[in-house]
Design a protein around this nucleic acid. Sequence first.
DNA 1: GTCCGGCTGG
DNA 2: CCAGCTGGAC
Length: 219
Amino acid sequence: MPMTIRRLSRLLAREYGESHWWPGDTPFEVIVGAILTQNTSWKNVERAISNLKESELLSPAAIARSRISELERAIRPSGFFRQKARNLKSFAEYVQSTYGGHVDRMRRGDVEQLREELLSLPGIGPETADSILLYALGKPSFVVDSYTRRLLGRLKVPHGGRYEDIKRMFEKSLGTDADMYGEMHALIVIHCKNHCIRSPICRGCPLARDCPSYREQKK
DNA sequence: GTCCGGCTGG
DNA sequence: CCAGCTGGAC
């Protein structure tokens, strides 16, 4: 049976249950995490966020008025610290000037327009924009990451290949519920960390029966 | 395609 | 020791 998104979500949910994922005490903290975790393990992001807390640098206002050098020192454990410090500051300044420092006000208005707005900021690409929309603001905007691409590739689920193509494919199959999107993306990450890593661990994989790559390999 | 990067786990 | 990390900009 060819794998569909619907079937994939059912199999992963059965295997891993609910994840209740993306940590963060406030929406702004979730956004900071989304920027810091770019191509970086969450463990290192936790250190960086912990440093920001100790330095009282976890609000748009505080970051907007902080010095880049101060930010760099705090977020150094999360890697790419020079660009991420600049990007954090420009995001904080954007929240200050556009939303009066209130992240919650970002929820108003059209999702597509807000997405474009986020994409126009430095250091905010498609995945980070969608992570912010989904996990910080609760908007139904599906997140596509390298794990998602790898998994679809192994399962040989046909798709256009571009970010927006994959995003739309998931959104068509999953309805318009933000919680469903969040859960699905989380399940994909958990699954790929467990099994669908670069050199796959197919023993015990809940998708093996439906995975063309597994069947090829077994020959 | 290449660069950015400290840190973790094997 | 070194491969890889829930990417993005150029």
